[in-house]
Design a protein around this nucleic acid. Structure first.
Lengths: 198, 198, 198, 198
DNA sequence: AATGAATGAGCCTTCATTCAT
DNA sequence: TATGAATGAAGGCTCATTCAT
């Protein structure tokens, strides 16, 4: 029955993700998840024994999916560096705007209370991965004559901190799609004298 | 007794700020505040009837103080634009690194769950104020020949989103003082071909 | 209001004693006590935060009362050793037979799980005290020519172990008043060739 | 399959005995037994449907085994009454001191809450059996001129109540082997003017 | 016979909130 | 104003018991 129970575990994770997305981390109770899953209290405890355990399980799934996507995008070597960077940024934009299943707030809440070592902090791992991808893309673009950039790493970090700023702002003070476009465009203008379309 | 009760209200706010700083928003109970203030439960309710009310009161005070400081700094016209910008950035850096009385986490927690209209969102008000200050300083600097900048508003927004990114990162993935300096420096380099010291 | 709350504490202890007497220790829940006291759940927690804490409070009261009684009985020097021993044994008999407020089982349950050092074990303290009282009474009786006994300490210990055996038997296999009389008489016959009435 | 299932029933009883010995009665859950037996929850319920049923089954086995041993010892007519009594007492001492598979606490817990008729109370049956054995041995000893005793039944009851007192004390206030020897010796001295070694 | 996932009742504990003083 | 005892709702967790397979 391992298969069946694996399916249920996945079912719970999916429902829980929606709950965390809606309520953040601290506001979520086991009862919330029980209600969302429409199972019994005891039933949930068979699979997860705390909201923290549940959240980390949701998150770890999230991170691996994201990594695969990101790496996949970055490795598709048949496109120009500019196109790939545009694609990468499109993904970031999508995530900033995402309403459903957006774990940003829950994640920030969780990791601002539960400190983990940098090596194991999935938020940091994801951030650093993104920085490296952008850096690499820019270097490729410079090599290909598409971009002009003296400090690809600095550029990449600047871009990703702006993305972080936009993400949190999106969940607190609110940002429109136009806001995001304008900000990302502003950063990208640093790469070339001419314009670049996202 | 208005004066006396005003003093007590202020006393409660000061104690509560420390509590929110330490525990975020959701984890704070009225009992925590009661204990911190060493007053009675009923006594606290005479002044504030929920942690949300308390938090907003703490925050509004925070925002107005910050505004005053910021505006004060920006208006002290006896310094060069560059010096003033350096001062402003120093303040931001201090806030990013602040351990004591740091309401960042509590604030994000609160406003990501409790949506308020943009007009009344103190986080948004503060962000917009900061953007305007930076924009003005840069314009002044350009006028005075200190800076070169074609888009002061864009620059200001970019700077403030990076600051937001650094703030949240400081509470989640951790940033060192060197990280902050490097990022802010990267942004400021956009203002001039030469270097500028924070 | 310390006085009032002290009265309530006492009220809870009295009700709790009845509950422990009826159900032993492990079978008692905080809810049982809440129901017996007809107060709110939270209300009980203001005074005691676990059944163990409650039980120890009940017990400590019990022990000090018992000690006073016992010491009082033993010190009333205006009676003969025989009369005093008879009185002491009457007390033991009363305790063995006691239905209401009988903490024997709860006490055995508690201390068979929660080991405490001999020095602090009220059961042991009580046992040893009783042994010493009996020993002293017998010595006095021997001196006064009332009893014949070569080993007062051995006699005292034998008596008290029989009492212990009767106590536990009373709560498990059941003993009648006749059983008790017969057993105690058997022990006492060791003191004198003639009979002695309880 | 009756044989096979009988073997499994026995297996469960053996494991359960260890659990009751370790945790008493009330603290034992069906889950504890399931874990100890390494069988399924449902599987256990096929054999026993509550901890009470399980406990009584463990106990009845215990009692019958004990009885057989005891009766066996008492009937082995090839030894002197003194030797047999010494053997019997050695067994009691072993049980008082036994750490593993000691059901004393669980038994007292169970029967102090769950009252059963005297006829069916295994504790009472066991006690009475022991009394009768001792009585018989003493009578034999008196007949053989080994002992002097005017009241063999009184002696037997006294001995067994002391044993009960020692058993409960062993689990609550603690007794050393020396304590036990001394007490039993004190009782036995009543049988003869000379000493008798256990 | 045997399994183990699932249920739901029950107890534990904490807190926001009220109210008599 | 101020106190703090008291309440009861809410959520956490465990376990006996059932049942489809």
């Amino acid at each position: 029955m391992g298969e069946k129970s694996e399916r249920k575990r996945q079912y719970i994770l999916d429902k829980a993700r929606a709950v965390f997305s809606e309520k953040g981390f601290k506001n979520v109770t086991m009862k919330d998840v029980v209600d969302a899953c429409d199972i019994s209290r005891g039933g949930l405890y068979l699979y997860f024994s705390s909201t923290a355990e549940l959240f980390l399980a949701v998150l770890s799934q999230d991170v691996s999916e994201d990594d695969e996507e990101a790496v996949g995008a970055a490795l598709s070597g048949d496109a120009s560096a500019g196109d790939m960077l545009a694609l990468f940024i499109k993904e970031q934009k999508k995530e900033i705007l995402r309403k459903k299943n957006n774990l940003t707030v829950a994640t920030y809440e969780y990791f601002s209370v539960n400190k983990v070592s940098a090596k194991e902090n999935p938020l940091k791992i994801k951030f650093d991965t993104s920085v490296r991808i952008v850096e690499k893309l820019v270097e490729n673009g410079v090599d290909a004559g598409e971009f002009i950039c003296e400090n690809p790493l600095g550029f990449a970090r600047n871009l990703m901190y702006v993305v972080e700023g936009l993400k949190i702002s999106s969940n607190t003070i609110g940002v429109t799609e136009e806001n995001i476009d304008r900000e990302l465009m502003y950063v990208l203008e640093g790469l070339v004298p001419e314009e670049l379309n996202s």
